[in-house]
Design a binder for these strands. Structure first.
Lengths: 341, 341
DNA sequence: TCACCGAGCGAGAGCGCTCCCACGCCGGGC
DNA sequence: GCCCGGCGTGGGAGCGCTCTCGCTCGGTGA
């Protein structure tokens, strides 16, 4: 295996100069640089990142902790992060941390604590006290996208505002019987993403002098089948049927639309449906939704990390102190005024 | 930062013994090992993987090249790989390689060539000649899951058999007008996944003395919206309408089922639909499908990699030489006999 | 004319670890 | 009683790189 000393010898310079020429730092004459580069490619020289990071203390590697890959939102975030890291010359090490358990502890205790990554991006993870502490002790920048727990920088949309915005859209159309397909933990975890969306929904209803009808708030997973089942339950509930439905995710909304179709309830004629996410399939379903841009969010998280690592050119105000991430209402054909009578 | 020499000093042993005690190799007295471990945790010692890999030459890191994360099949494979690698003590470095372009070259030339990973798993990637060469030259084990290009080990289902199996299921039910929603490149790339599925479909039809009707093979993306649009086109085609549809992926099949419902074509009454994948939403849709197990496939890929790295306990016959990965027909409510007349 | 500066380069230390080798010690076989 | 082997341990080399320090040398301002 060719080492940098071989390159140096071939180019007729010292190790130090070869290193400077190849890694770009320091003052090297153009002609020398060219000679070194030629020598390197001639003998197929490949730098050893291990040796470099041993001395620099930087791994050029960012760890990404994510609870699940296979959900549209998370996949999109992950792709956004990957793209941004790659173009900054960083590698992405993936830690797919599921629910609590020994495996989760293992990631935090063993993998992340090791000096394998320069920084950590946690996506939609509710960090436990000891997990945050553990990460803080390693003195690595930690950027969170959603989720909870005290950290250096947190990027998040305003989930309560999302709930309010969605509900207000339905109220403005004239609906008064508005149901909510809530995400998991909405009732139990008040500060969480799902809790805030529920809260925003209740706020908006309250401000209009309304309250959810009986059985009109159903809590379930944010998946399509869960939305399907949840909607069947919700729409099949005895008593006055809701004329509008706010689903906590687009996938749930898709499931609900299919459930409505199965029950012979026309969307939007008899039931308006609104979701959250801006899923790539929303257009096909004609779904009105509160759009967020997960890929872009991933990119912003990387930007924040790079800034904390001192890689950024500009020294902007610290991220996380800024405004919540943008969302916007996209109206399609799944929402309209309630049926008369 | 505490180094191993500090641990050694505190435990009253040499660096060498401390290293042996902590990394498990060699002969260390139980009592000594305990003392070293106690010392390590007392001063919060964290090993430096960079230093270790500098001397061992192993990074305990596997690169995963994947064209897209946000498609159910790929996400599932990725999660399977991650789980298996994690439990073997390996890290996963993600390279989300999209279509050709400078970025793709960059991954192969710059990232994968560097000595950052011990092995590479390529998922659903058609490796170009020079890419395969480049990887081979680095002398790292390379395991492919699907895709094309010459490599050490390839794991794949038999896609032609999948096409045949699906089509035969429909033939057995009595269908004769069977359409196919093919994946991208099915016609243009004969050896590819989509090409083989198309081929299997044509084989089965041919064996039954049939041929696809005009406009009954539509090629499009493997997504739900693409399946939706493709099915609208297919079912709206003038001339005799197909009574059955073989979609190259479950997501396409979902889109097709929704399209059929929109057109007022009953599934399975007037149109039987079969997909491929065993998508987690298939049950909700009642979709008959050729199931494969992407998560399990990911695990198998990791197993193959570990074997090639010499980590495996058993020296089984080389992977890739074995049979194709298993698939099985799961019949649900989306397929039935064709309507009479 | 001379001090000074900075660009260009070389020598060499040292990052933190593993592993090879050597050494002492103890138990068992001859 | 002696040798031998293997266990437990220590010493120290060296993995491949970057970075600091110091040198030289040409240009520049006083």
């Amino acid at each position: 295996m060719a080492a940098i000393v071989d390159v140096a010898r071939l180019a007729g310079v010292s190790k130090a100069t070869a290193s400077r020429a190849l890694s770009g730092g320091g003052h090297v004459a153009d002609e020398t640089r060219r000679r070194v580069e030629a020598a390197a490619s001639a003998i197929g020289y490949i730098a050893s990142p291990a040796a470099a990071s041993l001395v620099t203390g930087r791994t050029m590697n960012v760890g990404v902790v994510i609870p699940i890959v296979n959900r549209w939102f998370f996949g999109e975030v992950l792709e956004g992060i990957e793209r941004a890291l790659l173009s900054a010359g960083y590698d992405l090490t993936l830690y797919n941390v599921r629910d609590d358990g020994p495996e989760r502890d293992r990631v935090f205790e063993f993998f992340l604590a090791r000096k394998r990554v320069d920084a950590v991006i946690a996506v939609g993870v509710d960090l436990a006290e000891h997990e945050a502490t553990r990460l803080a002790r390693s003195e690595k920048p930690l950027v969170c996208l959603g989720g909870r727990g005290a950290v250096d920088a947190r990027l998040a949309i305003d989930d309560r505002a999302v709930g309010t915005l969605a509900t207000e859209h339905l109220l403005r159309l004239g609906h008064t019987r508005i149901a909510h397909l809530a995400g998991p933990g909405a009732a139990a975890k008040p500060g969480s993403v799902q809790g805030e969306r529920l809260r925003g929904y209740l706020d908006a209803l309250g401000a209009a002098g309304l309250a959810p009808g009986e059985g009109h708030v159903v809590e379930t997973d944010t998946t399509m089948p869960a939305g399907f089942t949840g909607a069947l339950q919700l729409l099949g509930h005895p008593g006055p049927r809701p004329t509008a439905l706010f689903a906590a995710s687009d996938e749930m909304a898709f499931g609900a639309m299919i459930a409505a179709e199965r029950l012979g309830i026309a969307v939007p004629g008899q039931l308006s449906v609104i979701g959250v996410d801006g899923h790539e399939y929303a257009e096909m379903f004609g779904l009105t939704t509160i759009e967020q841009a997960p890929g872009e969010q991933g990119r912003l998280a990387v930007e924040a990390v790079l800034r904390l690592l001192g890689d950024g050119e500009v020294a902007d105000p610290l991220p996380g102190s800024g405004a919540p991430l943008p969302t916007r209402l996209v109206v399609r054909s799944s929402t309209t005024a309630p049926p008369r009578g």
